[in-house]
Amino acid sequence: MAHIIVVGNEKGGAGKSTVSMHVATALARMGHRIATLDLDLRQKTLGRYVDNRNRFLTKEELELPTPRYIDLPEIDASSLKPGENPYDHRLSAAVSQLETEAEFILIDCPGSHTRLSQVAHSLADTLITPLNDSFVDFDLLAHIDNDGQRILGPSVYSEMVWNARQLRAQAGLKPIDWVVLRNRLGAQQMVNKAKMEKAIAKLSKRIGFRVAPGFNERVIFRELFPRGLTLLDLKDIGVQQLNISNVAARQELRDLVRELNLPGVSVTF
Score class of each variant (00 low, 15 high):
M1H: 08
A2E: 07
V7W: 00
G8E: 03
N9C: 07
K11S: 08
S17K: 14
V19E: 03
V19F: 06
S20L: 04
S20A: 10
M21K: 00
A26R: 01
M30Q: 07
A35L: 01
D38C: 07
G47Q: 13
Y49M: 14
D51K: 06
T58C: 09
E60Y: 02
T66I: 11
I70Y: 10
I70P: 06
E74R: 11
A77F: 02
S79K: 12
K81C: 09
Y87A: 07
G111M: 04
S112F: 15
S117H: 13
S122G: 15
L127E: 03
T129N: 14
P130W: 00
L131F: 07
A142K: 06
H143P: 04
Q149H: 08
Q149S: 15
L152H: 06
G153K: 02
E159F: 10
R165M: 12
Q170I: 11
G172C: 08
K174W: 12
K174A: 14
P175G: 01
D177H: 14
N183F: 13
R184A: 02
G186R: 10
Q188C: 05
Q188N: 08
Q189L: 14
E197C: 07
A199H: 02
K205S: 13
K205T: 15
G208L: 09
F209R: 12
R218H: 08
R222N: 05
L224K: 05
P226D: 04
R227N: 07
D233T: 09
D233W: 12
L234I: 00
D236W: 09
Q240C: 12
L242N: 11
A248G: 12
L253D: 02
L260D: 02
L260N: 00
N261A: 15
L262H: 01
G264T: 07
G264K: 13
S266H: 11
V267K: 00
